[in-house]
């Protein structure tokens, strides 16, 4: 029951953090110049005062700020994320419509980066100082150091335009009418490039970390003991070093998984992937306050949840760690 108490405590803290974030976001978003009514007047290519007043009234922007804050917070308390007057849709619907695409993209990218990162990092560590180590480290750096939007476009040009292997935009073939397995395959085809582009960036980070972690564990006493026992180096690397070295990598990855959800803005933009990162960026550009706040909230909640899950896994894997960690 220790675990249960731990989870409840963490959830409690998470709720407090989320509440504070909700308040901060509210003021952040309002601090930006311009408001949604002005934006819509701008887009309309016209806009008399009546038009602006109508919109502001509709959006509730004519009410005092504290009233708006109160309405917003009390809505959130009941898990009601509000309504986007610009899009005439409840915010939660808009987000839920986009969330699966984001989860798929970030999930795939997460998986790719973790597996590749751990494997490459372990390889590099085993061959530390040799050319294969340098090759892996450099390759990882290339993906880390090249702006993501540049890689994204480059891969579209190579794999979509020149080679014609993969579709360059979208979630699935529009008007393809696929169902079942065919649809899944179609989505996977669309997923490959964005997931790799996003994943390779993180691969670089995990590979570096895995390498460092392996090297550190390799010097630990229990590894020396294992050598003393006469175990073969391959077995030691696999059973003793890699297994222990992977823990901090997984922890970091878990922390970043939550961030990924809100952090795929660039990838979603360049590949026209219909996820919430794009929704957020577009909402910012239109000052669609309720949507912007909603996405912020949901992605922050994701971070809290992912962190918690990581901690739980960690505790299960490594029971030595106390609840306070």
């Amino acid at each position: 029951m220790d675990l249960l108490r731990f989870v409840l405590m963490r959830l409690g803290k998470g709720v407090i953090v989320l509440f504070a974030i909700a308040v901060l976001n509210f003021f952040l978003v309002r601090a930006a110049p311009g408001d949604p009514a002005q934006v819509m007047a701008g887009e309309a290519g016209a806009g008399d005062e009546v038009f602006l007043d109508q919109l502001r009234q509709q959006f509730g922007l004519d009410r005092p700020l504290y009233e708006q804050l109160w309405a917003y917070l009390s809505n959130y308390a009941t898990l009601d994320l509000g309504f986007s007057y610009r899009q005439q849709q409840p915010v939660l619907d808009l987000i839920l419509e986009r969330l699966p695409a984001t989860l798929l993209l970030t999930g795939a990218a997460f998986f790719i980066s973790l597996v590749l990162g751990v494997v490459l990092g372990a390889l590099a560590a085993r061959r530390v100082g040799r050319w294969s180590d340098s090759a892996i480290t450099t390759l990882a750096l290339v993906f880390y150091a090249t702006p993501l939007f540049w890689i994204a476009l480059m891969s579209q040009i190579v794999f979509s335009l020149k080679l014609g292997w993969l579709p360059n935009v979208g979630f699935e073939t529009v008007g393809g009418g696929y169902t079942g397995i065919d649809r899944a395959l179609d989505i996977i085809q669309h997923l490959i490039m964005p997931a790799l582009t996003l994943g390779l960036f993180f691969t670089a980070i995990y590979a570096r970390m895995m390498r460092a972690s392996m090297l550190e564990v390799a010097g630990a006493d229990f590894v020396k003991t294992a050598y003393a026992k006469g175990l073969s180096p391959a077995v030691i690397t696999r059973r003793h070093i890699a297994r222990n070295a992977i823990l901090p990598v997984v922890t970091l990855a878990g922390l970043q998984a939550g961030q990924l959800v809100g952090g795929a803005i660039l990838t979603e933009t360049v590949f026209a992937w219909p996820g919430i990162g794009r929704l957020m960026f577009e909402a910012l550009a239109q000052r669609d306050y309720s949507v912007l706040l909603g996405v912020f909230f949901i992605s922050s909640a994701m971070v809290v949840i992912f962190n918690l899950v990581t901690d739980i896994i960690y505790r299960i894997v490594d029971p030595r760690i106390g609840a306070s960690a």
């Binding site: 476009l153 360059n168 935009v169 979208g170 933009t269 360049v270 026209a272």
Partner: peptide, 15 residues
């Protein structure tokens, strides 16, 4: 179709 990046739109037409 909605494709937010201009360069990706060009590629989409070309393909």
């Amino acid at each position: 179709r909605f494709i937010p990046d201009a360069a990706a739109r060009a590629v989409a037409y070309e393909t």
